[in-house]
Design a protein around this nucleic acid. Structure first.
Lengths: 130, 130
DNA sequence: TGACTTTATGCATTTAAATGCATACACTTA
DNA sequence: TAAGTGTATGCATTTAAATGCATAAAGTCA
């Protein structure tokens, strides 16, 4: 496992905090995160990579999507940290993001809001290839 | 009060984490911190300034010394954060630092280990002026 | 006032993060 | 296989942190 310093470095950026805030609601795929955060795809991907390196997030691939989730460690440090994040991410940005995410789930715009047997296109987040 | 992001930026550096670890034991003056951390005076001072800006540390002047301490806020966020730090700062560095500090206090080498009515010099940490 | 202890800061340099853009890579499905 | 969807990465650029060195600033006390 990673040290505290890595955790804090992972959390020392507003974009990554916004991602963490979203992941507190559960597992999400990259494109849903990108949709809420509204940043470029490469930017979001890089921050997710950073979070994985920090040891805060793990991922799994499912088809051409990758799903990210917070570490679920039983160690007291991890539980304390998540407890802190839950009570601390209360700024306007985080609340607005949570709202956006919930609405998107409700509208069936997120991959997690569908129960499908196979992956299907959902919404276009990047231009099609040449 | 400052936002979460500022807190995490404040904590995203090994030197500042070492300082925070020391301050978990109580209020300390800059020179005692410098003694344990072993870094240059300006470096330690800058990190302390950073921690103050982040809202994690407050200071008070007493004579020619400045004493630093962790914020003691009753808000749940603050208490959760300190709770996390207490269980999380367990790497070798932090344990070694705590030990060094305790020994220095025991040996009367720290300003907090003395009960004096007025400030007196203690140990030389920087060269005398020209 | 002048010598001393501690702390802060201006300046220059190095080091690391963050971001955008284009493109490669992974996977699915017609 | 080819086109579509989503994710990662190489490269260049900008922006911010970290560090050292010298020096100023704040306060004490002979």
């Amino acid at each position: 496992m990673k040290g505290v310093e890595d955790y804090f470095k992972g959390l020392a950026d507003i974009n990554r905090l916004r991602i963490i805030n979203l992941l507190l609601q559960g597992e999400l795929c990259g494109c849903d995160i990108q949709y809420v955060v509204g940043s470029s795809q490469s930017n979001v991907s890089r921050h997710l990579t950073y979070l994985k390196r920090s040891g805060l997030v793990v991922d799994r691939r499912e088809g051409y999507r990758v799903y990210y989730r917070l570490i679920q460690d039983n160690k007291p440090e991890c539980r304390e940290l998540l407890a802190y994040l839950k009570v601390a991410l209360t700024d306007k940005v985080f609340i607005a993001d949570s709202k956006t995410l919930k609405q998107a789930i409700k509208d069936g715009d997120c991959t997690i809001s569908e129960s499908r047997t196979r992956a299907t296109p959902r919404r276009r987040l990047s231009a099609p290839h040449a």
